[in-house]
Amino acid sequence: MTSKMFSTLDSFDTILSADSVEWCPIENFRDIFVCGTYKLLEKESIDASESQKRVGRIYLFQVEHGRLNLLEQLEGAAVLDMKWARSTVSNKILLGVANAKGMLQIYELIGDSRPCLRFLKQIHIEKPGEVVLALSLDWSMGEQFINNLSTRITVSVSNGSVHVFELTDETLEEIKSWHGHEYEAWITAFDYWNPNIIYSGGDDSKFKSFDIRVDTPVMINRSHTAGVTSLHSNPGEQFLLASGSYDERLRLWDTRKLGRPISKTNLEGSVWRLKWNTFENNYLLAACSHSGFRVLDCKNIEKPIILAEYNEHESLAYGCDWSFLNSTELFQRDLYPEPGRQISLVSTCSFYDHLLNLAIIEF
């Protein structure tokens, strides 16, 4: 059953399991988003290291009159995470991809009439030949974007390590790494208000904070009772950070006091992705694995309220994101019949039923 706040506009069968969706934040391209997929192929082989192969696709969509228009489909390694740079970098619209071959890849969105993705560069996160998966990534939104200085990307890896890369016109190179977690480092994220601070969460149930200027963690928190799977710094509210875990709790944090969370909210499902709303910074979208998607109002950070549930997916709810189109733009594009209403456009995706949905949320 779908909450009255949600209205599904369109759906797409991604064929392979869908686990990541990300909307382009750059003006004139905010009707575009990507969806990443994952499939584990089994094949007979004497060599155990060759017995499994993870493949995936990147789908590039444009939304037109409430429908999904597939612009491009790229075949490659399984996609674990994707993120757009929130500002242009050297006048380029860039997408970062973390994949199952242990690579960080950079693509550029090009073309006006029919946009497409052009591969720019990639880097092995660990030594060539070492079998790891790149699990998550994030772009810094700090002073380096504002001052047009260096651009940094953090990536977490299945062996527990956390890395920081610097991107220039000529190179993509590692500038820092830590052994962050005993098992999979499921998530890494920048503090969007301090470009030197990076957070990570792992299957060892630890939530950590790193400063790229030092060699050891500056904070280790053990309040999660299962693996830490999602972290997102609020881009509109300084010091506010959200974390999600296999323990099914959303935790909100004041980054000045990371000893204990401000609040814990039971979302009744493993919290795989958390995304703060683009325009209303108190709204949070959560992908809750076997319990669908949730929208929360976190205006009172001590007592977040679950506003709506979205249960039109029949499998693990893994990917979700808010569009960067505002209410007026959505009305102008015939995506909603009533002007002046506060609405948001979201995309959601789920794993085993390989379903991608486009939906309107009415507040």
Score class of each variant (00 low, 15 high):
A78Y: 02
E64C: 02
C35T: 08
G102E: 06
L74W: 05
R57K: 15
D138I: 05
I32E: 01
L104Y: 06
W84E: 02
L167M: 08
P128N: 04
G36D: 05
T171G: 07
T37S: 09
L167A: 01
F119L: 12
G102I: 06
E42N: 13
K53Y: 05
L68C: 02
L104N: 05
K101S: 14
L41V: 11
L172R: 03
F33K: 02
K92M: 11
D47N: 15
I93T: 06
Y59D: 03
S150T: 11
N159T: 08
G56R: 01
V157F: 00
V97Y: 01
F165S: 00
N147I: 09
N147K: 14
I123Y: 08
M103E: 15
Q144M: 07
R57C: 11
N91P: 08
G66M: 03
Q122T: 11
C35Y: 06
G102K: 07
L104G: 04
D112N: 14
A100M: 10
K92F: 02
L172V: 08
V97S: 06
R118T: 15
L135W: 01
C35M: 09
N91F: 01
V164L: 03
L41N: 15
K176F: 10
S87Q: 13
K83D: 09
K53E: 15
A100W: 02
T171L: 12
C116H: 15
R67Y: 00
K101E: 15
Y107D: 06
K39Y: 08
A48L: 14
S161W: 00
G111Q: 10
E170T: 12
N147W: 04
E174F: 08
L117D: 07
F165M: 01
Q144G: 14
S87K: 13
H163F: 01
E64T: 08
S49W: 10
L41H: 14
K83R: 13
A100C: 14
L120H: 08
E72S: 11
L68Y: 00
Q122A: 11
I175L: 07
V157L: 01
L135P: 04
V34R: 03
A134M: 07
S158Q: 02
G36A: 07
P128R: 05
S45L: 10
I46L: 14
Q144F: 07
K53S: 12
G56V: 04
V97C: 09
E108R: 10
V162K: 00
